[in-house]
Design a protein around this nucleic acid. Structure first.
Lengths: 333, 333
DNA sequence: TGCATTTAAGCAAACGTTTGCTTTATGTCA
DNA sequence: TGACATAAAGCAAACGTTTGCTTAAATGCA
């Protein structure tokens, strides 16, 4: 591989000048610019980013830490981040914490060692693990997670609104026995918000929250399957079920088919995310849409701003979710 | 951030010695080792990987180039790569070519500029774009793609066998009007193999290949939907359809539901990949399983071998697929 | 004791850039 | 013509490591 010195030699100038030609950091006479560019072309020279990074202390690389990758939801967001990053000449290093605090911490350290310019955290980490994040010297942005007063950026779907919309839709359809399947309980920031919005809609309409109608479980599709069956077997089963994610809801409607419960005739179902797959399930899934791809794009756009202007104050951006009505919900019989 | 010089000063030794302590590259007296390690702990020193990379010409980072990320199949493979990489202290930079030759090339160049130690290509790139890959000085490995004589490693599912298994299953169930929905025609290496295996099974059983029973389309779920309807509307519709991917097959069975064609009673359906989702569709999808996660793990393991021993000759590894029989296939009525 | 050998650790160049400071050549003006 | 300003480009340090070569001290042996 040719270096800047090879280019300089071939063009008959100092390598300082070559550097200035490449970066357009000071005036160079037309004639010299031409010679340098010619040499660059002839040698197929490309600046070594590692050396540049060492000298400039910026790597044009950002780290993305996800918890896992099983849910297509994560990939779509990642795609949004990557797309925007590419346009600005940035690369992304992805790590999966697998919800393991040890791996999470190690990953963050690896990212810092590699000199990433910023980190996007798209991980359901619980709050005890924040301290070592707060005083990194690089910008940190949380996706779908927000920690008050943490001094970090956050971009989140308005989960409260999402939960509210789901419950309200059920109520408008005449349902009162409304259940909910969540992932992961208290650690889960999104869930807490959704359930609050949910409760609000119930309260506004004088429907009491029945604790038996809430199942907390994990985020695997099969957990949705099991939860549905549990509800169906209750003495007074709910007539409407809100699943924390489409992934869970898909398990739910599959369970319904297996035990001959008709969705939506007997039970209405709402999911969350609007995965692509919702358009292909039987029945097609009513769900709360969140703009996964855009969330990724926004995340990069924001972190890029912060990289360029280190004085910017952290902020929180909320993105509006939208109810998408398909075939899995219906007026109560 | 503390540097190696800070550590050296604090421990009262030269920074050469600190380096040797860290890397265990030469004997250092017990006493000095202790002092150095103490200083490292006290300063929370971590070696700067950028500087190390510049000097050693190895980055402990590999590049992964995917075409896109819409199919969960990609994420699962990526997860396998990441997991193995993490265990060896490697990070991965992911890029998406979006099937755009320009972006693909740019991405490869960016990866090289960043000094990645190897590249895994998980992209359906067509063969015209190979030349600039063959003489990179770093190992290159193709996932699910193989180019004869290219001098590059490859790890592939035995697509020929996969196609063969699918067709044979249909034949054993008594089907003779057997159709096929593929993605992307001739550029697609996997597809060509699958269709060959497919043909072989047909030939062995004296069934002629009916060109009208082959639809070539793209890889989107909706393309599977449309293809199913096209087949259903034929004068003599097929009684069995093999979809190039589960993603397409899922579209297909959704179409069946919409036009009241019973799967599997009227038409049997087989997919390919064994996506997680196959267990939750209605009906559950019979499919050709390929070990997506393991493929990722194998890919990293192999590329790691090649990084460590640059004399290794490129090789091709074939992974056996497996037919998973669920509910979408049945004996011909 | 004196010389050769071994042991432990330091010196400084190198990796490929960027950038503050300096130099050289040219032009301007009284 | 001489003093000074300006234009264009070069020099060399710095980024934080690794590593070949060297040095100083300690040891072995006659």
């Amino acid at each position: 591989m040719a270096t800047i010195k090879d280019v300089a030699k071939r063009a008959g100038v100092s390598y300082t000048t070559v550097s200035h030609v490449i970066n357009e950091t000071r005036f160079v006479s037309e004639d010299v610019v031409k010679r340098v560019n010619k040499a660059i072309r002839e040698l197929k020279y490309r600046p070594n980013q590692v050396a540049r990074c060492l000298r400039k202390q910026e790597s044009k690389t950002i780290g993305v830490l996800s918890s896992i990758n099983v849910n297509p939801y994560f990939s779509e967001t990642l795609t949004g981040i990557e797309k925007k990053a590419y346009l600005e000449g940035y690369n992304i290093i992805v790590c999966y914490s697998e919800c393991n605090p040890e791996k999470e911490k190690e990953n963050i350290e690896m990212l810092l060692d590699k000199g990433v310019d910023a980190v996007i955290i798209h991980s359901l980490l619980d709050e005890t693990r924040i301290p070592y994040l707060v005083n990194l010297e690089i910008p940190v942005l949380f996706l779908q997670h927000h920690i008050e007063e943490s001094g970090m950026d956050a971009i989140c779907t308005d989960d409260f609104m999402g939960g509210y919309l789901a419950a309200k839709h059920f109520i408008e359809l005449g349902h009162t026995k409304i259940a909910c399947v969540s992932a992961e309980g208290n650690d889960n920031f999104s869930y807490r918000q959704r359930i609050k919005g949910w409760e609000k809609a119930l309260n506004e309409n004088g429907i009491e929250l029945n604790k038996d109608y809430i199942i907390e479980t994990d985020f695997h599709t099969h957990a949705g399957y099991d939860a549905f069956i549990k509800f169906a077997k209750m003495e007074v089963p709910p007539t409407a079920i809100f699943f924390y994610s489409d992934n869970l809801a898909i398990g739910g409607i599959r369970a319904a088919a297996d035990i001959n419960v008709a969705v939506p005739d007997q039970v209405s179902v709402i999911g969350f995310d609007d995965l692509f797959m919702c358009q292909y399930t039987v029945p097609r899934l009513t769900t709360v849409y969140q703009p996964k791809f855009s969330l990724g794009e926004m995340a990069f756009a924001r972190i890029f701003e912060r990289i360029k202007d280190r004085e910017l104050k952290p902020q929180k951006q909320l993105v509006e979710p939208k109810l998408i009505i398909r075939e899995s919900t219906r007026k109560r019989a």
